[in-house]
Amino acid sequence: MRKKIVFMVSLLAIFGLVTSVFGQKKPDFPRKSVTVICPWSAGGGTDVLLRALSKETEKFLGQSITVVNNTGGGGGIGHAAIMNANPDGYTVGMITFELNSLPPQGLIPFTYKDYDPLMRINADPPALTVKKDSPFNNVKDFIAYAKTHPSEIAIGNSGPGSVWHIAAGLMAQQTGVKVKYVPYDGAAPAVTSLVGGHIQAVSVSVAEVRAQVDAGNLKILGVMDNKRDPLYPNVPTFKEQGIDVTFYTWRGLALPKKVNPAIKAILSDAFKKAFDSQEFQAFAKKVGLNLAYQNDKDFAKFLETNAKDVEAVMKTLGLTKK
C-alpha cells in the first residue's frame, strides 16, 4: 500500500514536471546571445541598417545581438548561410532584393520559398537622376529624346543584374526606348561618373544621389514609387508623368525554415518594437531610408509577386540563364 502511494505520488510529480515544461505558453527564449547574418560587407548600407536595428532590439530581447557579415557570391553566400542555419531561433538573417534576382540568373540554387519571412524593413524606389545642366527637366523629355536617339543615352547602375540595372531595364521596357546600361561596381562610382559627366543618367535610389542633389550637381527627374519622396516633395513620380512603373529594392528579416512559432513570435515582437523605437526611426530618417514595414504574412506575399516581376524583367534584359 505504502509503496503504491509513493509510486502514485512520484508519478504525479513527474507528470506535473513534464506538463510544466511542455505546457508553458512562452518558451524560455532567448537564453543566450542571438546572431544576425548580414549577406553584405561591414560598413555598407545593409550592414549599417542592420546594426542600428539590432542595437535597439537588444533592449527588447534582453540579450545581446551579434551581427555577422557572411559576404561574397553577390550576396548568395550570406543568404545560403541564413537558410542553412540551425532553426533554434538563435540565428536570424537579413534577406535582400538579390534573393529574387540571383535565382533567374542561375547563380543560386534556392529561392525565397526556402525561408520563413519575419518582416519587411524597407523598400526604396529608384530615381532617374541627371546632371544639373542636363537639357532634360522631366521623365517625358528624357523618354522623348531617347526615342528619337536610340542607343545614345548611357544610364549607369550599381552592377550587372543589380536592382538598379533591372530598374532601368523596366523603364525602357515600359516606354519602348533603347538605352545603354553601364554597370559600375556599386552605386557610388556610378553617381560619381554622372557628376563627372561621363554618362547621362543613373537609375539608383534617392538616398544614393541625395548628397549630389543637395550640392546642386544633379537633379532628379522622377521616382518609381506610387508616392513622392518626403525629402523631395517637388519631384513627381513616374506615374504622375504618365509612365506607370513602380519598382523597389527591399530588405527584410527572415528565419531558416522550421523555427518554433512561439520563438518566432518573440523575435518578431522584439524586432518590431525596435523598428518602432524613436532611435531607429530617427536613424532611418537621417540616412534617407524608406521604411516600409510588413508583417510575416504580407512580406511572404510580397516576396512571391516581387520574384515573378523581377524574373519577367530580367528575361527581357537578357539577364536570365535560359
Binding site: 561591414a42 560598413g43 555598407g44 548600407g45 549599417v48 542600428a52 557610388a188 553617381v191 560619381t192 557628376v195 541625395r210 548628397a211 549630389q212 543637395d214 550640392a215 546642386g216 550637381n217 536613424f283 537621417k286 540616412v287 534617407g288
Partner: peptide, 27 residues
C-alpha cells in the same frame, strides 16, 4: 569636398557622416 569616397575606408566613413546627420560634399 565632393561627397565622393576616395577609397574603401572613406566609403565607410561616408556612412558614419550620414549617421551623424551630416552630408559630406560642398554643403
Amino acid at each position: 569636398s565632393l561627397g565622393v569616397p576616395g577609397d574603401a575606408v572613406t566609403a565607410v566613413l561616408l556612412g558614419a557622416f550620414v549617421i551623424q546627420g551630416l552630408q559630406p560634399g560642398p554643403l
